[in-house]
Amino acid sequence: MVLNYIWIAFFVVAFLIALAKLVFWGDTAVFPAMVESTFSSAKTAFEISLGLTGVLALWLGIMRIGERGGVVSVLARWLSPLFVRLFPDIPKGHPATGAIFMNIAANMLGLDNAATPMGLKAMEELQKLNPHKDTASNPMIMFLVLNTSGLTIIPISIMVYRAQLGAAQPTDVFVPLLLATFFSTLAGIICVSIYQRINLLNRTLLLTLGGATLAVALLIAGLGSLSRVQIDALSTSVANILLFLIIMVFILAGVRRRINVYDAFIDGAKEGFQTAVRIIPYL
């Protein structure tokens, strides 16, 4: 209901301000500019959705192969000890767990295009579990915080953009980004856990967070001995190898299960297209 009032206010406030500019300052260009901006924004929303269509089709197709091949259920079982504490309202083995993991993994590798469709898929699955469809559930809030804080171990996309724009050292942001996203994720988990009354002193959570802290420290120490060129080459190679390895694991799992991998991919890709269409009104 709040969004309803906010959306209406956008137009009412804009109209009143434009009317005041026209009446008191004689700005005759304000209304044509507003109308032009409205159409331009609508066009931009469609272009954003169109740009996501291919990526959504690809990754939701791969995800569907993983679901039918059993990879998603295996991931859900592996992550169950941790996720059952961070997301106590998600049933064990639910598809949302696999989508959340894939989104977090893609974010950690700095692969934004891969993370977006997985995030949309995760939210779609979480909405199915949500008893109050017009209100974000606790798992949605926790996932949104994890997604927004975006722990990034290998910021490949940002380094590529910096290189394309002529940065002298594209890898300069590696350690700052790692530290910033790690501590923002840690802070987010703590804040949401306190709000949702999740026991942070649980042994599993303590071991996970402590292990993650140690891993980040070791990674920074190890990369500190490499040159910037080596860091750039290593991070680019590792991120893309891991990404393609995930695709291969999903496909081979489908072959092992003797499913029709191509049909599974097409079914998921169709869902990706439908998802891209569904998000247009919200943009």
Rank of each mutant, 00 (worst) to 15 (best):
T181Y: 05
G93V: 12
F31Y: 13
S37N: 14
N202H: 15
F10A: 11
L111Y: 09
L50Q: 13
R228E: 15
C191E: 08
I104H: 00
N113H: 04
L207I: 10
V249Y: 05
L179R: 08
M63A: 10
N138L: 01
N202G: 15
A115W: 07
D134N: 11
Q169M: 02
W78T: 14
V261F: 07
L209F: 15
T44E: 10
L200M: 13
A264V: 03
S73G: 10
V229R: 06
V192N: 07
L86F: 01
K43S: 09
L22G: 03
G224C: 08
G211K: 02
M63W: 15
L22K: 12
Y262V: 15
G93W: 05
I100F: 02
V175E: 13
G210F: 07
N199K: 15
V173P: 05
A20M: 10
L52N: 09
I153Q: 02
L200W: 04
L120G: 14
G166A: 00
D263F: 09
G211R: 12
E271F: 04
I48C: 02
L109R: 04
M248F: 12
E271I: 00
D267F: 05
L129V: 11
D134S: 14
S49K: 09
L214G: 01
D89I: 01
V192T: 08
